[in-house]
Each structure stands twice: as C-alpha cells, then as structure tokens.
Nucleic acid binder design. Structure first.
Lengths: 218, 218
DNA sequence: AATAATTTTTAGACTAATCTAAATTTTATT
DNA sequence: AATAAAATTTAGATTAGTCTAAAAATTATT
C-alpha cells in the first residue's frame, strides 16, 4: 500500500522532472516539499525499494514507469476536482489548489471515473493545465508564453504557468481569464514589459506577468 | 491540529455513546476501530489531554462539548458526501460508505458549505440518517423499527439501522427503498418473522431484517 | 467474602516520517 | 591539482500510532 506521504513525494518528483528527463536533485525535492534534504534522502531510498523510483546516491532520482503512472493518476484527480470546485461549487481559480491537494488522495476508481463523466470529460483544469485521461495520456496543445509572442500577433489565453493566488487575483483584477483574446501591441526593450490589447482596452504588463501567461497564437 | 486518527476515534466514541450518555468502554472502541485495547487507552488519554474527551482510568470515556462538535462536523461531512455520491455520481447506497469514510476528513469550510448548497440542503443521507446542519443540530424524526410495529399498521420506510452492503443489497433485491410503503400483515409468534405488504406484493421478512428497518407510521 | 473471569492499563518495542548535526561526496574556483 | 563551497548522505534522536505481554483493577460467580 502506498502512503499519502509517498504519493506527495512522487508528485513532487513528477512535477520537477516534467521538463527534460534529467534526474531530480535531493535539494530540489526538499524545497518543493518544504522539508529537509535528509528526509528526502530517506524517502527516495524507500520509493526506490518499492519500485516507484530509480535512485543512485548523489545522482538524483527519476520515476519508474510505475511511479509515473501513480503521478499521473494523482495529477488527474487533482485537476478533475479543481474543475468540480470551479464549475459546481462556486470556487474561483485562486481558491481551488489547497482543497484539491487533499481531494487528490481519495482512493476510489469508481469515484474518479464517475466524477470525470459528471464533469463532461473535461480536458483542461481551471488554470488551463491538461487533465490526463483514464490511462494517463495527456493531450498537449501548442501554447507559448506571452513573453515569447511577437509584436503584432494575437492569440487567446489558454493557461497560466504560475498558479499562485496573488498572480491569479492580478489576472482577475485585469479581466484576463482563460479564453480572453490578447493582441501584442508593443514590447518595451528596456524592461521587456508588453503592451497588450484585451477586452478592448490597452494594458501594460510586466515581463514577469508575460512570462507566466500562456497563449495559443491564432 | 487534529490528526486523522484522532478524528476517527472521536467519531467512534460519538457513535458508541449516541444512545444514552453513558461512558464508552475501551473494549467497545477497540472493537469498533478494529484495534487493540492498549492502543485505545493511549489514544483516549491523548484526546483527554487535548480537551476532546473526558476520561478516567477504568471508567470509560465521554466526549466533551468540543469533542461532540468535531464528531458532528465529521458526521455532517460523511453524510453530505454520501448524498453527492448517490445523487450525482451514480453510486448505490451500498457503495458509498467506504468512499465517504475518506471524504469526511477533507478540511475546508467553504467546500462543505457549498456542497451542502449544491445538494439542496438535504436533511437525510441515502440510508435515512439525519444530516447535522452547519451548527451541528440534528432534526429528529419519529421513526420506529419495523420489528416494533403492530400488526395492521402501515408506514413508510425512512431508514436503516444496519447499513452493511449485504443488508442493503437484500433490500434492493426485494425492492425496498427509502419511501417504500409497508403494511404489517402478520407476525409469526414462533420466530418473530413478519409478513409485510410492499409494492403490492406480500413478503416474509425475518426478525433480523425487521430489526434493522426504520419506518414512520402513517 | 473469596476466587475466577474479564476488562483495562502499563511497560517496552516497533514502524513511518521527520529532524539536527556531523561526515562524505560532488562541483566550482582558484 | 588543490582547495573551497555546495550538495548529499549518514547517524542518532523524536513523535504519532501501533503492538505484545504482563500487571493491575473491576466485575461476576461461587
């Protein structure tokens, strides 16, 4: 049987290793999990013994196929619950994370499949992140960061990279949501801030903001 | 902070102490929790130190007001989730318990209040058990066990005492559900089995069955 | 009232997960 | 290549919850 703590470590390793298949470092996991490196060492040894991860001393860790499957099932549950909270329980996109962190550990195959059906088999969560299907497959859409878009181009907002409450509240305040049409009017060479047109209004956003907003160019 | 295990002990003490305010014995808790008496002793000491229970050596344990509040909030969550599973996720009443046991520990005030509203503020769960309101108040209905009903009387089924899967499946098989009209035709003196009329059919049920079905006499 | 049976508690050990502090290994810098 | 800095691991302790086996208290029976 897999414990809640093991699940959380597997999820952390998955998220840290997502881009590029390189080994995830002990310190990186410790930072992500807000724990100490020594605790991480103990746990990755255990995950390795149980067959969820490959670990060699001082060399970092990667997930095995079994580990990845577990990670994807947790991600799937997390994102489906987020959709439920936003679509049916009046949560806003900056409120869902904490609760979904708890709900993602509920174990019941029937529950999650019925929930999926109840929600209409959504493909993306409220932050635009893709929801793995029953067999763990993720449908990728070609999105780019707003900071990488060229002046003159237009696209629609399809996701956020950072989903911290502060960032999401900033977007709400400026009427930027998933589906919002955005045109890049001007990029300021000095600070890389960007002037965009959205909701028929011009808005200047900092490079940091632009670096955390995904659009699909149309 | 209260742990998951503490919550489960509090819930067990609540359920065992529900009828009559007498002290709950160590052995009774051990049986309910499927654990050893020595573990129970340790835990009730801890609950007592934390202010959730009153405990005196060899004398059993009762919940404090704070303990009762916690118990009621867990019961409320459990039963609301059961309604959700049955009403919206196609679970049958014999499948909900295990999953609700997990969901009842999710901590989020907003979640449970929004869920309550989403479900239309239900007053009873799929087994006919009352759902405590936000402030822990339970609305009691006057129900009696079918085994206590008099021959000739009629009523509607409003709850089950046992909610084990086997019992609930028996009821399904015999088309008895919450809301079913039942008339007591005959009681057999020898084994206390009862002949009832339900769904326009006569049915003989054992005393054990009759002892686990609640009706409201009409 | 004494003894037997049952219940409950205590003592001590175990596992999972964590931590601090020290030791070791790897990586970076001179 | 030697040394300094950073990252990682080990050793040993701690907490929550559990267990077995033995001791103590309560309850039942003669």
């Amino acid at each position: 049987m897999i414990t809640l703590t093991e699940e959380n470590y597997i999820k952390a390793i998955y998220h840290l290793g997502k881009y590029g298949a390189h080994n995830v470092s002990t310190n990186a996991i410790a930072k992500e999990m807000e724990t100490k490196a020594s605790s991480v060492t103990d746990m990755v040894k255990k995950l390795s013994e149980k067959g969820y991860a490959d670990y060699k001393k001082y060399q970092g860790v990667t997930l095995t196929e079994e580990g990845k499957e577990i990670a994807l099932s947790i991600v799937r549950k997390h994102r489906l619950w987020e959709v439920f909270l936003v679509d049916h329980l009046n949560f806003s996109w900056d409120e869902v994370h904490e609760v979904a962190e708890q709900l993602e550990h509920i174990k019941s195959k029937k529950l999650i499949e019925q929930l999926d059906a109840f929600l209409g088999f959504p493909t993306h969560d409220p932050h635009g992140d893709p929801i793995p299907d029953k067999s763990g497959h993720i449908k990728k859409i070609d999105k780019i960061l707003l900071s990488e878009a060229q002046v003159g181009h237009r696209g629609i907002c399809v996701g956020v990279k950072d989903s911290s409450s502060n960032f999401l509240k900033y977007l709400d305040k400026n009427s930027i949501a998933l589906g919002t049409e955005i045109e890049i009017i001007h990029r300021e060479p000095f600070d890389h801030s960007i002037t965009i047109q959205a909701n028929n209004k011009e808005l200047i956003i900092s490079n940091l903001i632009a670096n955390n907003l995904f659009i699909r160019v149309s």
